[in-house]
């Protein structure tokens, strides 16, 4: 096998190791399994009773793409915590003293967290279907919607690896969590952007999360199509893919480099 093949094989091995951790302590998965249900109840029933959907329509149909996007954004926190927790562990010393691919650990982390994210998304979808969310554009469009969500999740997992390597310990990682909340809120996730003050509206319209939410609404055929004419919102699918690839292109080399040099100074 060539170097690339071995790098993939090593990444696969580390990914299986992370998934085995979860199998041994399923408690860590409880959050992933239950939070979608809590989100649907809080936003669908509590906020939803007071927020009108632009252009009319069922608020829970408007909401679901936003909740999916929120889950995708939360991927960054999942990964930061796991990477930071792994950092100080003795097993990292063994990895670094072995002739394995340096990219294997970050690839393994992001791969395993993508699987976790996909499971969370599936539960979210089932819960959504129960409360009346529906897709309207057929199989391919629906699959494309989930594909875009997973691509975005994966990019954010990588951002999580980089940040997790930078913060170095679990406590700091935990303290970063609230900072990511505004990233999802400052968008069209829960309320239409039309009512925002213009400067806030500009930020919200260019927020990659808005493009992701708009892409999902378009592909799933859910209400709330943006009335804005900024490019990311008139071409939300293309914009989301571009944002994700751009983030990956920046973060993957940085995170891999960071892992390579971590602890050596």
């Amino acid at each position: 096998m060539n170097a690339m093949g071995w790098a993939l094989a090593d990444g696969w091995t580390v990914m299986r190791r992370n998934l085995t951790h979860l199998r041994h302590s399923p408690g860590e998965m409880v959050g992933v399994l239950i939070s979608p249900v809590i989100m649907i109840v809080i936003f669908g029933y509590i906020f939803g009773s007071a927020i009108p959907v632009p252009g009319g329509g069922n608020y829970r149909e408007f909401l679901m793409p936003g909740l999916f996007a929120m889950g995708a954004t939360a991927a960054v926190m999942v990964t930061i915590a796991r990477v930071a927790a792994d950092n100080g562990k003795g097993v990292m010393d063994r990895y670094r003293s072995m002739p394995m691919a340096r990219s294997a650990v970050p690839f393994g982390h992001t791969g395993a967290d993508l699987v976790v994210g996909a499971v969370g998304m599936a539960i979210m979808a089932i819960a959504g279907l129960i409360v009346g969310w529906r897709v309207h554009n057929g199989l391919w469009s629906t699959l494309a919607g989930f594909g875009v969500l997973l691509l975005f999740t994966y990019a954010f997992n990588w951002l999580g690896v980089l940040l997790g390597l930078l913060v170095r310990n679990e406590e700091t990682a935990d303290r970063l969590t609230p900072l990511f909340f505004p990233v999802t809120m400052l968008s069209n996730t829960f309320v239409p952007t039309e009512g925002m003050p213009s400067w806030l509206r500009t930020i919200a319209e260019w927020n990659p999360v808005s493009a992701l939410v708009a892409a999902c609404r378009q592909l799933f055929g859910n209400p709330g199509a943006p009335v804005s004419d900024v490019w990311p919102l008139t071409h939300p699918v293309a914009a989301t893919i571009l944002w994700s690839l751009l983030l990956l292109a920046v973060v993957v080399p940085l995170a891999t480099h960071r892992y390579r040099i971590a602890g050596r100074r």
Partner: peptide
């Protein structure tokens, strides 16, 4: 090389 460190370099969360 093989390394057995002062602080066991094994994964606690695996068997």
């Amino acid at each position: 090389i093989g390394l057995a460190g002062q602080h066991a370099a094994v994964d606690e969360k695996l068997t």
